[in-house]
Simulated scan of single mutants.
Amino acid sequence: MHRTSGIAFPVVRVTGPPAERGRQYGIQARDGIRRSLSAYERVFEHYAGWDWATVRRHAARFAPIVDDFSPALLAEMRGIADGAGVEPDDVLALNTRSEIMFAASGQKEGAPPIPHECTSFALLPHRSATHTTVIGQNWDWLLHAQETSTLLEVTRDDGPSFVTLVEAGLLAKVGMNEAGVGLCTNTLVSDGDEGRPGVPYHVLLRAALDSESARAAADVISFADRALSANYLLADDTGFAVDLETAPRADGVRRLTPRDGQITHANHFRCTDLIGEDLYARRKPHTVARLRNVTESLNAVSSLSVDDLRTALADHRDHPSSVCQHPNETVHVRERTATIAGVIMDVSRRTMHLAAGRPCVARWETRHLAPKPRTP
């Protein structure tokens, strides 16, 4: 019997200038933000032996970097803190948790490997049944994210309005905007990732959703002084799609373009000349199997419907490290990961299909954004 997950993500709707929409976000997501802070306090203690005061001190290093990159985003984070009744460095710590985890884990003898997953794809119009540009992924992460994830809908006048699925308190993750830009992402881990000061990963994700085209988003990410390695999959309603594999150095960008009308990605570098050693692939070689499996699923159908894509994201081949990931009961509870959500976005139609929980059992919901009026 097919069982349906009863999970549903709360929706937060905000508007206005940066500080005000941040304050609205903080008020509406207060409980989720505080749960996020408690969860990451436990995560950092487990992975690095750091207390929260130490985490906040490291997060504070990024404030001037974010302010230099985008003062509006720093103002928005401070607004989130104000609305949630927490300290600004708490919200900064959430938005730099990836950078801090790399810095912290490298200082603890025998620290467990940092958990990162995700499997993503993009389709050009001739590969989709609707003849539109489609982009999507499974987002896999630590189990507490199932309780803190929030769908953030932002309406504004200072850039494109957007919708993004986030852990409460984060600026952005996977999402799309009214200009027709879609964003998916996969964490990459190279031997150059040390938590160095630079523009944080989640700030760059938000910068992509602030962009008027996928090309513009790719340029923002490419020219930024990035703190970490990461993969950014971008597409827009012009039929353009590109995948950026990045490392934290000036020349650390490689662009992957569609092959047979599609791009697929997991958590390893496909451009091996970009880094010295792929630490994720060494620690978790199942990333190669996930990439193979999602690519085979897409290749099996010449014109892919949303139902076909839902099936691809529910794939259990190579369980427990499958595209649709279930918690591995053999590892420590703090290290267990699972698919937190499946996301499929038709950026041409500004439509998001969202499964809260594992796609094999989750109920898919559909949300719409109004297209941004084109300037004559």
Rank of each mutant, 00 (worst) to 15 (best):
T15F: 12
L234K: 05
A145E: 14
Q28N: 03
T148R: 03
S348E: 06
V242M: 07
A179Q: 10
R21G: 01
L233A: 07
Q28C: 02
E296F: 02
S5P: 10
G342K: 00
T295V: 06
G252D: 11
V343C: 13
V333Y: 11
F162Q: 06
F44W: 09
S297A: 15
L304H: 01
T119M: 03
R23L: 06
P10N: 04
T337E: 11
A341T: 02
P115L: 08
L152P: 05
A281V: 02
I80D: 02
L304C: 07
P200R: 01
P197Q: 13
R127V: 09
Q146M: 11
V288T: 08
D243K: 10
F9Q: 09
L256K: 09
D68W: 06
I33C: 04
A84L: 12
S302Y: 03
K108Q: 15
A63E: 15
L234E: 02
A104L: 01
D308N: 12
I100R: 03
D82Q: 14
G180R: 12
T337V: 14
A227H: 06
V189M: 13
E20V: 15
V86K: 00
G110S: 14
Q107N: 08
S213D: 04
K372W: 09
S128R: 06
L228E: 07
Q24H: 11
T375L: 12
S190L: 09
T148E: 05
S5T: 15
R3M: 14
A227R: 06
K173V: 00
A370T: 15
F162N: 09
P197T: 10
T187L: 08
G169Q: 06
